[in-house]
């Protein structure tokens, strides 16, 4: 799905450049006009860290990548060419995030909120209840709250 320049300019710098140059395209199943979706996301938090959810919690692994090494267990793809790695994942079922929280490294808490169209386009895959959200620059994620349980 090729996007016009005006739309590309809404995204953060790295994704924006990739889209403008045609190096990546968003999947054809991406939706720009959709009803808001209640989703759950695991965010890295120590047990006593109750800071509000911010855009920092919505950085993709690719943005945060701290090592040139590639994770194991992933299909061998050039991550820089897969648009999903510029999006952030959340899930339609909280049990999926609860399962991730059973693993201590890093310690996590669950954030819950709405993926909404003004924040950016999304792609939902019902087979794994996964929502990939491509956030616009300075999207407002203050609607996401830590789940008290």
């Amino acid at each position: 799905m090729r996007l016009n320049e005006e739309l590309c300019m809404k995204f953060p710098a790295v994704l924006r450049e990739k889209l403008l140059k045609g190096e990546i395209e968003l999947p054809d199943t991406t939706e720009f006009d959709y009803k808001k979706l209640l989703t759950y996301r695991a965010v890295a938090r120590k047990a006593d860290d109750n800071r509000e959810v911010t855009l920092e919690d919505f950085k993709s692994y690719f943005e945060l990548k701290k090592t040139p090494k590639s994770p194991r267990g992933m299909l061998k793809v050039d991550l820089s060419k897969d648009p999903h790695y510029y999006g952030v994942s959340s899930f339609l079922k909280k049990e999926i995030v609860e399962q991730k929280m059973k693993f201590p490294n890093p310690n996590k808490k669950m954030a819950v909120g709405y993926v909404y169209k003004e924040g950016g386009p999304q792609e939902t895959k019902t087979k794994d209840q996964h929502v990939c959200w491509w956030l616009y620059s300075n999207a407002d994620v203050s609607g996401f709250k830590l789940w008290e349980g």
């Binding site: 695991a42 993709s60 399962q99 059973k102 490294n105």
Partner: peptide, 26 residues
């Protein structure tokens, strides 16, 4: 199980043997 799209708990297999893998540091 994955976290931030990174596999953290997964099954592997060689010719015949299963292995469980845990990512201890993402």
């Amino acid at each position: 199980v994955d976290y931030m799209d990174i596999p953290i708990f997964f099954l592997c297999k060689d010719q015949s043997q299963y292995y469980v893998v845990l990512c201890t540091d993402i």
